[in-house]
Nucleic acid binder design. Structure first.
Length: 867
DNA sequence: CTAGGGTTAG
């Protein structure tokens, strides 16, 4: 009540002044509005209808308008767009002040509310208000800020009295969109129309020219800058330096820098980031060192630039020092610095420190979360990455394009198609689009083995870049679809010129086809282009020759390569191991060691893997000991896995068991699984049972190992055990499995999850038609009594053993026996059909069910019908 | 005008 009285008196005091000429008496208006309508938040609810009563001295038509203007302006000041818009809609009949429209447009621009902005614009038009340069500018500002540059430009073109500010603004908008050419055109017409560019214009111009890579024109503009008297404008010169650096012209950047009479912090920051971007990290740090204690003080940007430089060059020690320095200067409290800092730790491989920084941040943005997720992804810690992604969403932080590409990377290295598809769904639902996102999706699908999905993303991507093509080609290569890879390689060349990455993507396809001639052709292509100095490319070439069984050619290329990096040596050493030349491998290692190059974790993985696959027991141990003793590398699970595999292949099962028990980290299922494979190979049922026990403790849901154990039992003809084991699998649902290239593929009746499901279905369909022609289909009776023939046949095609056999027919080369295992008894109709298939396609098929083996050949089965 | 996170390659 007291407040109300106070309000009333204030109004009475102000209102007799009749200050309603809003534009001319801006300040008074503000005072008026503040005191009359919103003396305190508690009175905000006063309805407009109550006001006129207290303002009875003012003619109604005028104070009505004043009230709208005043109230809307007040709401604009409070940044309450929704309420302001409501009021604007209500005032539709009245013409508001220009200032009010301007305030509204400003608020729409700030809130990026294009929808509301358009409404205000429409109102201005329908009220017949002339769009002068002030209102026009605001409209342009609103449209451009809300992202509708086109509409902004249309209004801009119609403004009679443009000014430099507006020219700069629209030019900058085009530059931000990446349309540098349009920015440049605008600059030209601006100069032609006689507008005098200011420092902002020149800065924007240099930005465009740098991004366009137009060095010549840049130099011309440089001359124009000097002529226009901006040669000593620190802002312009700063952007000039940045231009030269971005253009890779370090000398001119330095020359301009040296000739500057005054330098500010931006000058020095630009120098540091310019040096670093051009690979001159030391010179960048030199500038930084000189800044410390000089009159130009280090600022937040400086710190961010230097820490980012450490991140991208992997200098952890320097990064830590700068961290300590930042704490002294209290930069570490700033979010931007924190983000860069944690990214630095993550990129240098120190995730513990990164996590510490992350946990200590008092404010986090989407960048902080993304940096952590990206760090875990790079570290192949997919679970941590995915958990963080979920936590981030729970906390209400919206993932952006950067976040989803990182999380897709994690799904890819996890090989988790299911998670990847979930993320894909999330991306679709939230319309998070960008080319890198599409590329990351293709990569994820490719790495998870689904080239069909990868291709559908590829096909749906209208503007592809070279990364898109390379990802697809590499995907086909790695998924053993070399013909598809080569096809796409040819198609690609109609649209873009392949680069070195393309070559490294296509060569493994040649390697897996053992298409030596094709590989050599591409090698020739590379030689003609004269780009053999790319170490990545050379490494892939060597690898291709190794895999095409041309060790001699690999060796020649290796010897001819002057710049050998770690991978070059690793590929060669692993190549020798792969072909069983342990002695040469060790000799090559010694040579590398003399050069002072040290193998890393990944190198040891590929070398140990090669040793285990060719049974190089002695050399395998030698490299293992080098890793542990000389290189002081803690063995990781994959190293242990190789060693267990090596021991198993050598028949040393109990040693492998002892080895696992002595491991410094907890063995996972892959380690035990390797031993279980060994048990199978060497028919050690006793050990297999112990090992399987451990596996089932760890992953009771993982079918693969039940399958393996049941294989071990049945090979030892322990049918009772097979039955007990398989009875437990999936509630006795029919399931079958087939091993192809070391991978067990499991099929469940009626389930069409397999990526090849469609192909399998049509294959079986065709076979069934053939069978009907043979007049055999009438024998189908077991599956579904009472259903019509078609349905019965469909049911047969969906039985797990048929799916597995179909898969085998697709995947295994002609003539190779198809071996399928089923957990329950084979169904009679399927039995008939398999008999038919064995004759029709001329293949031996071995089907093992829970009772016995069925050897199918030429339309007969070894069980002679007793099944 | 400077500054932070993402996609392809062994």
């Amino acid at each position: 009540m007291l407040l109300m009285t106070k309000t009333a008196t204030l109004i009475l005091r102000v209102s007799p002044n009749h200050q309603i000429e809003t534009q001319k008496h801006h300040k008074n208006l503000k005072f008026h509005s503040r005191s009359s309508q919103f003396p305190s938040p508690t009175c905000q609810t006063i309805s407009p209808t109550r006001i006129p009563a207290t303002l009875s001295l003012i003619p109604p038509s005028i104070h009505q308008i004043t009230d709208y203007n005043a109230e809307i302006n007040k709401l604009c000041e409070l940044r309450n767009l929704q309420k302001a818009m409501d009021l604007v809609s209500k005032s539709e009949e009245t013409i508001l002040d220009l200032e009010t429209y301007c305030h509204m447009l400003q608020l729409c621009a700030d809130s990026k509310a294009l929808h509301h902005g358009k409404k205000v614009h429409n109102l201005i038009i329908s009220n017949g208000i002339e769009i002068d340069s002030v209102l026009g500018s605001k409209l342009v500002f609103m449209y451009v800020s809300c992202g509708d540059v086109k509409q902004g430009r249309r209004i801009f073109d119609n403004i009679v009295k443009q000014n430099v500010f507006l020219w700069n603004f629209i030019m900058n908008a085009y530059a931000k969109m990446g349309d540098y050419e349009e920015g440049l055109c605008l600059f030209k017409s601006m100069v032609e129309l006689g507008f005098k560019p200011d420092s902002y214009t020149f800065s924007c111009m240099f930005k465009c020219l740098a991004s366009m890579g137009n060095g010549k024109l840049g130099e011309t503009v440089h001359g124009y800058v000097l002529k226009s008297g901006f040669g000593f404008d620190i802002t312009v010169v700063n952007s000039m330096i940045d231009f030269y650096f971005k253009f890779g012209n370090v000398d001119d950047a330095r020359k301009v820098f040296v000739e500057m009479p005054d330098r500010d912090v931006i000058t020095l920051n630009t120098m540091i980031s310019g040096y670093v971007a051009n690979g001159l990290v030391d010179q960048g740090f030199e500038v930084f060192k000189n800044m410390i204690g000089s009159k130009v003080r280090v600022d937040l940007s400086t710190m961010v630039i230097v820490v980012a430089a450490c991140a991208n060059t992997g200098v952890l020690i320097l990064g830590r020092m700068i961290h300590a320095y930042a704490v002294k200067g209290e930069f570490d409290k700033k979010m931007k610095f924190g983000n860069t800092l944690l990214d630095m730790y993550a990129k240098c491989g120190d995730m513990d420190s990164a996590l510490k920084v992350f946990n200590n941040m008092n404010e986090r943005s989407v960048v902080s979360w993304t940096s952590m997720i990206a760090g875990y992804s790079r570290d192949r810690k997919s679970d941590e990455a995915i958990n963080l992604f979920l936590e981030m969403k729970k906390k209400g932080v919206k993932p952006d394009t950067f976040t989803v590409t990182s999380i897709l990377h994690a799904c890819a290295s996890n090989g988790s198609l299911e998670k990847g598809k979930e993320v894909h769904g999330f991306i679709k639902d939230n319309e998070i689009q960008s080319l890198p996102v599409s590329n990351a999706l293709m990569d994820m699908y490719a790495k998870c083995g689904s080239m069909e999905d990868a291709y559908s993303v590829f096909a749906d991507t209208p503007f592809k870049d070279i990364v898109s093509w390379n990802t697809m080609i590499g995907g086909y290569s790695k998924n053993r679809l070399p013909n598809e890879a080569l096809d796409l390689f040819i198609k690609m060349q109609r649209e873009v010129t392949p680069d070195n990455v393309t070559m490294t993507c296509i060569l493994p396809a040649c390697a897996s086809l053992a298409a030596l001639n094709k590989g050599r052709e591409i090698h020739g292509h590379i030689l003609r282009k004269g780009t053999t100095s790319d170490p990545y490319l050379v490494n892939t070439l060597i690898d291709m020759y190794v895999k095409c069984d041309r060790l001699f050619l690999a060796k020649s290329l290796f010897d001819l390569t002057p710049i050998k990096n770690l991978v070059t040596w690793t590929v060669m050493i692993a190549g020798y191991c792969m072909h069983g030349f342990g002695h040469e491998a060790v000799l090559t290692y010694n040579k590398m060691d003399l050069k002072g190059i040290k193998l890393n974790e990944a190198s040891f993985t590929s070398i140990l893997y090669a040793c285990s696959h060719s049974g190089l027991m002695q050399e395998g141990w030698k490299f293992y000991n080098i890793m542990v003793n000389d290189c002081k590398i803690e063995p990781k699970l994959e190293h242990y896995g190789c060693m267990v595999d090596l021991l198993c292949r050598g028949g040393k099962l109990s040693e492998a068991y002892k080895f696992i028990k002595k491991m410094s980290i907890k063995p996972d299922v892959t380690i035990w699984g390797a031993l279980l494979c060994g048990c199978r190979f060497h028919h050690d049922v006793k050990l297999a049972e112990i090992v399987a026990e451990r596996i089932f403790e760890l992953e009771p849901e993982n079918m693969e190992y039940y399958v393996l154990l049941s294989d071990i039992y049945s090979e030892a003809e322990k049918w009772e055990e097979v039955k007990t084991l398989t009875d437990g699998i999936r509630n006795n649902t029919g399931c079958s499995w087939i091993e192809i290239k070391g991978k067990v593929n499991i099929f469940v009746t009626g389930n069409k999850d397999n990526p090849e499901a469609k192909k399998i279905e049509s294959l079986l369909e065709n076979l069934r038609m053939e069978m009907r022609k043979d007049g055999l289909s009438r024998k189908l009776k077991h599956a579904l009594v009472g259903k019509d023939e078609m349905e019965k046949e469909a049911a047969v095609c969906g039985h797990s053993e048929m799916l597995a056999i179909g898969f085998g027919l697709l995947k295994l080369p002609a003539g190779q026996t198809i071996r399928v295992t089923k957990n329950v008894k084979v169904c009679g109709d399927c039995h008939e059909m398999v008999k038919f298939i064995s004759k029709n396609v001329g293949r031996q098929i071995v089907l093992r069910d829970c009772n016995r083996f069925h050897h199918f050949k030429d339309g007969f089965c070894s069980c002679r019908g007793y099944c």
